[in-house]
Design a protein around this nucleic acid. Sequence first.
DNA 1: CTTATAGTTTACGTAAACGTTAATTATAAA
DNA 2: TTTATAATTAACGTTTACGTAAACTATAAG
Lengths: 143, 143
Amino acid sequence: MNDDKNVHIFTISQIADELDISTRTIRFYEEKGLIKPGRTAGNQRIYTARNKARLKLILRGKRFGFSLDDISEMIGMADTDMDELAQIEKSLYFGEAKLKEIQDRKKELSLLEQDILATRKKLLQRFTELKNPATTNNKKENV
Amino acid sequence: MNDDKNVHIFTISQIADELDISTRTIRFYEEKGLIKPGRTAGNQRIYTARNKARLKLILRGKRFGFSLDDISEMIGMADTDMDELAQIEKSLYFGEAKLKEIQDRKKELSLLEQDILATRKKLLQRFTELKNPATTNNKKENV
DNA sequence: CTTATAGTTTACGTAAACGTTAATTATAAA
DNA sequence: TTTATAATTAACGTTTACGTAAACTATAAG
């Protein structure tokens, strides 16, 4: 079984360029235990496609306001001093909670969208008022 | 025209309790110009339902990882040293960008959900493997 | 083999978003 | 009216998530 599949290996700067983050950020995530890339003979980091996918997941979580600690638990790599079973159970439990949170956020996302649309409406109204002062009355509202 | 509608007024701690944030946080948002509550004769802050709604909007934005500066611009209260027209234009422009971002996030939300579901699947698989070692082969995968 | 260029660790620096006193004043309750 | 709560400003402290600089090592290019 020649394990030649996916010999695609990346350096840290290749990853940084592709994901548009700094190398410092990548190393920082490693410090926090979020990724564990391999090393060359000369001690330089090497990243597989899997490592890259993991980073994408982390960045996705961040875009939703999750802290790195949150993400760490979501991913299921936290508390490496627990036995595997307990760790898996914890991760599963945490994952369920996060799924519910995602449901909530889906709803909130729509609310936020509506908030912004409402703000836009008011701004546009005020905009035309300023452009055309005759047609409207001067009502002072602070939203 | 007796303006008796909505005389519902709240103190800062009432708001803090209801929205589950600290009074410090509320005052901090005021410092940043995100809200402008009224004052009593004795200089204490008073919040209307409108002020409360504004705070909810801010918190909603935060839950999606927007910075307070972002939210400030979304809401349309940034850069008070610009003339109103320019300010409105900027806010509108920013709002459009944020709406697009929200669209993207809707898609990403599903991706994140799928990531978690996939992780859960693997965890469950490993879980049963550990509980029932005979029935499966031992494949080592580090996600 | 030399020399850019890229990567490594260590460590101090920083911006954002509040937390936490402290000293003082308002307001509500008895 | 005294007194217990609650609110106010001011200022320094803290955590998260990196930025940045220094001193050194690996690797690629010529």
